[in-house]
């Protein structure tokens, strides 16, 4: 028992109090009038680290206007949408910076069904989860992208 307690006690050296890493990004899709508005919320520090890793030597500060291009490139490289074999253009509308989380706004000039391949931040964390909330005229849908399953289909049941 004492040995167990000593082992537990020694292991606390590696723990910290406040750093609870949540490896999550949320995607909200609103489908109406043949258009899909897409909002991604992602932790600022995670996105900065991912873009810095993809652009060695570049200092990434998302609050600066020049970061827009870097974010656009990163998202375009890691988020693809298609219908059948046809790739659909995902238009970058802008981003809103907050110290905690960045909101990235995109749109598609079409509604559902969509096939999504989402690898955002998958290269950073093996337990990254990108959660999808879809709202449209036919109701709500949800979906999940993980490093082991980055592809999924958004389609209302028949």
């Amino acid at each position: 028992m004492l040995r167990t307690l000593a082992l537990l006690f020694s292991s606390f050296i590696w723990c910290s109090a406040s750093d609870h890493p949540i490896h999550l990004a949320s995607h909200e899709l609103t489908v109406r009038d043949g258009r899909t508005d897409w909002v991604i919320k992602v932790f600022t520090d995670d996105l900065e680290a991912a873009i810095a890793e993809a652009n060695p030597g570049v200092k990434v500060r998302l609050e600066r206007p020049e970061a827009r291009k870097l974010v656009e490139q990163y998202v375009a490289g890691r988020l693809q949408v298609s219908r059948g074999r046809k790739q659909l253009p995902l238009v970058f509308d802008g981003l809103t910076y907050q110290p905690d989380a960045v909101e990235i706004r995109l749109h598609l000039a079409t509604g559902l069904p969509l096939t999504v391949t989402d690898r955002l931040l998958h290269e950073r964390f093996t337990d990254q989860r990108n959660v999808y909330f879809v709202r449209g005229p036919q109701g709500r849908l949800d979906a999940l992208s993980t490093p082991s399953q980055p592809n999924f289909e958004l389609r209302y049941p028949k």
């Binding site: 606390f12 590696w14 723990c15 910290s16 109090a17 406040s18 750093d19 609870h20 890493p21 949540i22 999550l24 989860r129 959660v131 999808y132 909330f133 949800d142 979906a143 999940l144």
Partner: peptide, 22 residues
């Protein structure tokens, strides 16, 4: 179903091997 990942996040927020406060 997507929502249960939040349940998993909640559970591992308590049982977080890197942060033991809760």
């Amino acid at each position: 179903m997507t929502v249960p990942p939040f349940a998993e996040l909640g559970m591992f927020h308590i049982l977080d091997p890197q942060a033991w406060d809760h």
